[in-house]
Design a protein around this nucleic acid. Structure first.
Lengths: 149, 149
DNA sequence: AACAAATAAGTGTATATACACTTAATGTAA
DNA sequence: TTACATTAAGTGTATATACACTTATTTGTT
């Protein structure tokens, strides 16, 4: 569906304005669709994001502030997200031996298990959500990277 | 900056996955930058969005549920956003004469004034935020519209 | 060593999102 | 007309974002 119909707006001041609105709308569309996958596991999109970052560590611990650096939303609060995941038994906190200000975070078996259960579903969902061919997806990635300068 | 550096992730499972992550990250980047413009007026991005919708009515009233339909985030709560704007004196609520369940919303002088003060700044910001030429912006809009199917 | 600056994590508060729910008004069909 | 379903708005609660702030620890400078 074209953006104009989706938000019932006849025209935009210019293509730049439309692009920004289009990005906001498309992202919200994706969040809504993706959330359905996470919900059965009691995960929010950002909690899932933190788990993915932890898995990417392949066993080595990572501090709370490094998680924050890697997050999609730089303003989100890694400290509280980690606490939520800990309550679900998907991560553990450990005092960092070399710097007692820092806290090392590790993903647990349970966390890894949830991710692997989600893996195939996510892959399929991504393909159905993004109605583009391979060439177009690459083009989109290039445009987004260039957009941010 | 390429997405890989921005979120310190070496690789993605495939381009489709990268595109989705890229959209989330780029949207968050835009929200952060745009919020700075709204803040001096005590507006959040979604409150600004509601004001834009009301201005688009060109004087005719619109119900809360129609505002919801036109919003970028379909899950946001138009009722509460309208209440916040009313407290700032930027909109008024009126009982709908033909259907007492509905509530007509109108933008006030003050709301219009805030929007016009923001207009030029927004236009400039959009140009600097979106580091693409005219052709590329159109391409991006086409890809986003196509992506959603 | 002493002290200020910087850093890491976490807290407090306002706003917004997500979703189930309530209440009031309207529409529809027996 | 009564009864039931539908619709519009708003409420309640959990989560997340945004941003200022606190506390504890470490670093760096004199």
């Amino acid at each position: 569906m074209r953006l104009e119909e989706a938000i019932k707006q006849k025209e935009f001041t210019d293509s730049y304005n439309k692009a920004i609105v289009n990005l906001h709308y498309t992202q919200s569309y994706l969040v809504t669709k993706q959330s359905c996958l996470f919900k059965p596991f009691g995960l929010s999109p950002e909690q899932y994001n933190v788990l993915r970052i932890l898995r990417g560590q392949k066993g080595s611990p990572i501090t709370v502030s490094s998680i924050q650096d890697r997050m999609l939303n730089k303003m989100s609060n890694a400290s509280r997200l980690v606490e939520k995941l800990k309550q679900k038994g998907m991560v553990v906190r450990e005092e960092c031996p070399t710097d007692r200000r820092q806290v090392d975070i590790l993903i647990t078996e349970k966390g890894m298990d949830v991710l692997s259960q989600l893996h195939n579903q996510m892959h399929e969902l991504n393909r159905t959500l993004v109605q583009l061919n391979g060439e177009e997806v690459d083009q989109l990635n290039d445009l987004l990277d260039k957009l941010r300068g």
